[in-house]
């Protein structure tokens, strides 16, 4: 298995986790159940979301042969899904980051900030939608399947829920209803990920061109998939363990999130290695 698309692995996985966590925490903020003081306490560790987005975008430029020409990626906005993805991702980054900064500095009215938050959340959804379409290429039979949007969505849900849990925990708000619901969401997503990746692996048997079979693309695909699924099971175990034990909760949640990144990056790398076209 090659790692030649590692910059894209980092970009897509980190961005999906960041968007997922931002939308979940944004929903909590929009409900208005957070007093001003709690909001400010939660806002501070949310910086991690923007650090992840920064690393994601920095990694994405490493994918380019001519990184200095990166702005040219916007030239076909509306026409190419890659242009749309970069545009919507940048806008999400900018407006979400602005919301974070305004909350930190306590500038402009809370209502205006909530409007900004809502727009940033919608941009996050649009960004994820564009990423999916970048890979739904009709001439690439191994990517142009419902497993691509499902896999990307599950990364957002699993990574987003765990990251949101960690951020709530870091701000001392692990008692909230949302913090108690997040493990259920994560567990559900992980179970769906287990089932769907097995179904996906079996579906590969039916994809072939005259000179290439999908099942021959990645040697030891099944073993690597089992490693990923074992990592995801460990993620869930650590997550639940962290919430049951009272001590070192942020540390154990952090370890769980690192394992989740490893599992999803392995899974995403398998995805990129499954590239083949309908022809030569």
């Amino acid at each position: 298995m090659g790692w030649h698309e590692f910059p894209l692995v980092v970009f897509t996985v980190l961005a999906q986790c960041a968007v997922g966590a931002f939308i979940l925490l944004g929903a909590l903020i929009l409900t208005g159940r957070l007093e001003e003081a709690s909001l400010r306490r939660l806002n501070r560790p949310m910086l991690i979301i923007w650090v992840l987005m920064g690393v994601a975008f920095a990694a994405s430029t490493l994918h380019l042969g001519s990184p200095l020409r990166a702005p040219n990626a916007l030239l076909r906005l509306g026409g190419s899904w890659l242009s749309n993805e970069i545009f919507l991702g940048s806008l999400f980054f900018a407006l979400g980051g602005l919301f974070w900064l305004l909350t930190l500095l306590d500038k402009v009215s809370p209502l205006l900030r909530k409007v900004l938050l809502g727009i940033a959340m919608l941009l996050g959804v649009a960004f994820m939608y564009a990423t999916i379409h970048v890979y739904m290429i009709p001439t690439v039979p191994t990517w142009n399947t419902p497993f691509t949007p499902l896999g990307f969505f599950l990364t957002s849900v699993m990574g987003g829920a765990l990251l949101a849990q960690l951020l709530l925990n870091l701000s001392g708000q692990g008692y909230r209803l949302m913090a108690r619901l997040l493990p259920w969401l994560g567990a559900l997503a992980i179970v769906v990920a287990l089932g769907s990746s097995v179904a996906h692996a079996m579906s590969l048997a039916g994809i072939q061109s005259a000179i290439q079979s999908a099942i021959d693309l990645v040697p030891h695909y099944q073993s690597l998939l089992i490693i990923r699924l074992a990592l995801l099971a460990a993620v869930l175990a650590l997550w639940l363990f962290a919430l049951r034990s009272m001590r070192h909760q942020p540390l154990v949640l952090c370890a769980s999130f690192v394992l989740l990144l490893a599992a999803e990056m392995l899974g995403r790398n398998l995805f990129y290695n499954l590239h083949m076209t309908a022809g030569l």
Binding site: H63, L64, G65, S66, P67, R69, A70, N72, A73, L75, S80, L82, V134, I137, T139, V140, H275, T277, A278, G279, L280
Partner: peptide
Amino acid sequence: TCIGCKSCAMACPYGAPQYSARKGHM
């Protein structure tokens, strides 16, 4: 103009666009 993102190479079912690491573009 090309930024060397290799999207064209991923999509072409004939292997026509090829990335030149030396030139940094397709």
